[in-house]
Design a protein around this nucleic acid. Sequence first.
DNA 1: AACCAGGACGTGA
DNA 2: TCACGTCATGGT
Length: 244
Amino acid sequence: MINQNIPKIYNHLLSVYGYQGWWPLVHTIDDPALRSLADGYHPGQYDFPRTDAQKLEICLGAILTQNTRWLNVVKCLSSLETSKLLSIDHLLESRPGQIALAIKSVGYYNQKAKYLKNFAVFLSDHPFSELEDLPSADCRRMILDIKGIGQETADCILLYALRKTSFVVDAYTRRIFSKFDIVEPDASYQKIKVLCESSLPDDLPMFQEFHALFVKHGKRFYSKKPHGAEDFLLTEHLFQRGPI
DNA sequence: AACCAGGACGTGA
DNA sequence: TCACGTCATGGT
């Protein structure tokens, strides 16, 4: 199953918003100029993450941002850094209660403290170097077995930390696609993922930009409680007439 | 002052 | 499988 509107939407959003430079590395980015320039974002540079610390920051951020504003996550990442908890070994040594103290501003802090620790335990058995060499599908199954990692979080980790072309579906993707009847409003995660992966070229930077652009555009026009504006950008672009 | 945010899990039908 | 309650802080 292929849908030609999907690459069309991608190209238009890219032309409107430009490169997003995801995943933001707020604390472990090693280039100070870049860090202050774009608040952790690194538009046009696709050789991140460069260190295991950066990979870990992406994974922890992906868990922390579940149903949570990114701004809150940034606060938590810095307090985790202050508490020396931005490391696998220190997470392993800490009790969930101690971790919870550092991530209070994110909400769900008791649950997520356990999730972070679960992930650290997993990484101590399967270091990044091992995961990166695994086929994407195998790696995905393993990550999904961790309690606290669902499909979206797993795909974020695969796409941004492990650099595997695994499509990320989020709430904005479902809302945007269902508005233009590309999928049903209640379509399954897997269905949307497969549709997108077969409608797009197998290209890592593109997948990374795609999700980032959908979040950017989704925040603007597709919040759950509509605050007025309709999505004129995509409606005009998709419904304009082609050449005669 | 309700309502939502870059979801996931446990439960019961 | 699926609909629904729960987890919880901070911004609008």
